[in-house]
Nucleic acid binder design. Structure first.
Lengths: 260, 260
DNA sequence: CGCCACTTTGAGTAGTGTCAATGCTGGTGG
DNA sequence: CCACCAGCATTGACACTACTCAAAGTGGCG
């Protein structure tokens, strides 16, 4: 096979060298197909026959799982560069449902080609392994959020996770999720999410017009301390000496969180 | 390279054809080292320099993440055949801590060899991708458990997850975790886990001597219905007509769960 | 303009967490 | 051999978070 076909410069689909890993995969022999989705469009549905997998190039996509009883949960948001629909190769169906949140574009690649490519090109294999590891890492972080954080901590870390990079100065962020969807992602109810965000707004930590749209972080430092669960009374202080000032007084009415 | 080196029959470390995928990886050129761990032994610690990765051959290993404040959480249990310590390849440190729960044996493989192998042997690459996908799948299932289940449902599904195969008749299971560890895995407290299990015992759903050791499932059907959250009042009935018999009566004192 | 979906707010409560005390078990040393 | 001890598990009382149900507010779109 002609090695040059794998060269980034030969990529017909991916701009420049952005998403180099992604490029390697989706630009292979030309069997990938570019495709666009409107907000709300279904890329694939859990349980339906898996034929293609996707590489997200632009936009945001939510991944949902459905329980037997109809309860559904968002298990993650896909960001550009991420793979979508990569199941265990033996699995004949998609494990989850993928729905576009914003206008999104993807490279669509037949599954059997994936196997081909992995078997013939080691660079792509390594890329794939890296991407899966990143996804695993993200999922584990979410695991910690769901298992060990309070509602306030959950919402705070969610908002922070919207910042594309850690030390971004930009604080005006797109919020492509409804309250319902945020609640589903964080394992909360709509009402709780709404209340926490209303409280953040009152305390001037964030500024958010209602509903889907945008959100602005006003006080990033406080948000970070809330997200990391500074000042909790519980497990955190197990081996360290207990707070000498006695048990925390009943909290003031106006705020869901203690003073900072 | 000699293709026969990859043959399962040539595997010096792995018995028979058990864990065929695992075999492919850990039996490569002989740079894997067999190693044994006692219960409680640390395979690797989060944040320490990642040099090797592991393939678990026997025993059970817990994977833990540590938050900034010292709160820790178990993010999963590793079963034989599973990879341990495979980070994003760029990451210079382990993302989590791995501790043996039972007497365990692993194949230990230097990281740079992993890259070599992936680049030179496509069958191994595919195996690796499959294994990572399985891990992702397991992690997502846990995500759903943490985000959308009640304490009773969590404990019930945990107990069921101890069964090695879905339709195993064997109901006497090893329970290598303390109550503390179960709580950490499920995002609960020790007390809640203890209470739920005590309740299951009273209702003759399980039989468990106290503490680390074994657990026996007496009524698998009930356990499964509890795990799947049959009879809940909430989200489940959103689009279906609401229960006509009115809101659920206050539950009886003696049991944490409604009648079945 | 009115409908519809989404969000916000409020009141009340179920379910877990927290704290504290007690029980059980296996190991150790007198 | 038994008493003691340390560690884990259990149980109870209580507090508080987050859920439930209900109702009103807001905004977009035909």
């Amino acid at each position: 096979m002609d090695e040059s076909l794998w060269d980034l410069a030969a990529c017909l689909l991916c701009d420049a060298q952005l998403y180099s890993r992604l490029a390697l995969i989706c630009c292979s022999y030309g069997f990938s197909r570019m495709q666009s989705f409107e907000p709300g469009a279904v890329l694939f549905r859990a349980g339906s026959a898996r034929k293609d997998f996707f590489v997200l190039r632009q936009g945001q996509v939510k991944l949902m799982m459905m329980a037997a009883d109809g309860r559904e949960q968002i298990i993650g948001l896909a960001v550009p560069g991420q793979l979508l629909g990569v199941t265990t190769l033996e699995d004949p169906v998609y494990p989850c449902t993928a729905i576009a949140l914003t206008q999104s574009s993807v490279c669509r690649i037949p599954y059997h080609e994936l196997v081909n490519v992995v078997e013939t090109n080691p660079r792509v294999s390594l890329s794939l392994v890296r991407l899966l590891n990143q996804e695993l890492k993200r999922t584990r972080a979410l695991l910690h959020t769901l298992g060990r954080k309070t509602a306030v901590e959950k919402v705070a870390s969610f908002i922070l996770s919207l910042k594309p990079t850690r030390d971004q100065v930009e604080t005006d962020l797109a919020l492509p999720l409804s309250r319902d969807e945020i609640a589903s992602l964080l394992g909360l109810t709509v009402e709780t999410v709404s209340r926490v965000m209303a409280d953040f707004r009152r305390r001037r930590i964030i500024d958010a017009p209602r509903g889907r749209g945008r959100i602005r972080i006003l006080d990033c430092a406080v948000l970070e301390s809330l997200a990391d669960g500074v000042n909790r009374s519980s497990h955190a202080t197990r081996e360290r000496p207990r707070r000498p000032e006695g048990r925390r007084a009943s909290r003031e009415q106006s705020s869901l969180v203690p003073d900072h």
